[in-house]
Simulated assay, not measured.
Amino acid sequence: MADPKEYTLFSGGANGAEAFFGEMAEQYGLNEVNFTFDGHSPARTRGLRPLTPEELARKDVSLHYVSNLLHRKFTNAKLMRSVLQTIMYQVDSSHEVFVVGTLREDGTIKGGTGWGAEFAKICNKPLYAFGQVRDGWFSWNHDKGEWDECAEPVIGHRHFCGTGTRFLEENGRKAIEDLFKRTFG
């Protein structure tokens, strides 16, 4: 089994999947970094890493680009922009990304969570998604550009990102719980 003290979860600490990833990290003794910014109120307070306005600006991304990539409209609201910027820090800091949410037919993941998955694809990082509606794990096949059903993954890199929907269902909670149990026993 992996030594949990050598692992760090990078997340945003938001309600739902991110908060539950953090709870599991704390339960198993992993390090935890939750990126936040002024005016944001994350559910998790352990491992908070506030980003300065200058740091956020370094991850500025066109909301038009993100909207087109995810086939939905994102407003130019300061809060939404800052959330997307913190997601980029989560993914950049990790070597592997785990997402819990709703996989859409177009290959994206529903909501702001989808940006984390898309950014992981752009960065060519190992990417796993638990689809709550489909009730199973999928891995992103970078060569084919599509999701493949996969066996239940384990956390294989010491620096990993755990993100996902605010609307965590019971099967999503169990998927996260089992991911930690498989990896850290």
Rank of each mutant, 00 (worst) to 15 (best):
L168K: 12
L51D: 02
T86S: 14
T163R: 06
I122Q: 07
Q132F: 10
L127V: 04
A2H: 12
P42A: 09
L84C: 01
L103D: 03
F10L: 10
F98T: 09
P126L: 01
F130P: 02
R46D: 09
E149W: 10
N124Q: 12
M24L: 09
L70P: 01
F138K: 09
W147P: 04
K181S: 09
G29M: 06
R49Q: 13
G107E: 09
P42N: 12
I155Q: 00
T165Q: 08
G112I: 08
S94P: 04
T86N: 11
K5C: 06
R46S: 12
S94V: 02
V83T: 07
G29D: 02
V97I: 06
G13D: 06
D38V: 10
A77N: 14
G162Y: 03
T36K: 12
E152A: 13
L127H: 00
P50C: 01
N68P: 04
E26W: 07
P53H: 03
Q90H: 04
D3N: 15
T45F: 09
G114Y: 07
G185R: 15
S139T: 10
T36C: 14
D3H: 12
A25D: 02
L168S: 14
M88Q: 14
W115M: 03
K78M: 04
G185L: 07
Y65P: 00
W115S: 04
P153R: 11
T163H: 10
L48K: 06
E152M: 13
F35E: 07
G39N: 00
D60S: 15
C150D: 10
Y128F: 11
H40L: 13
A151R: 11
M80S: 05
K59D: 01
L30T: 01
P4W: 03
V61W: 04
F184D: 02
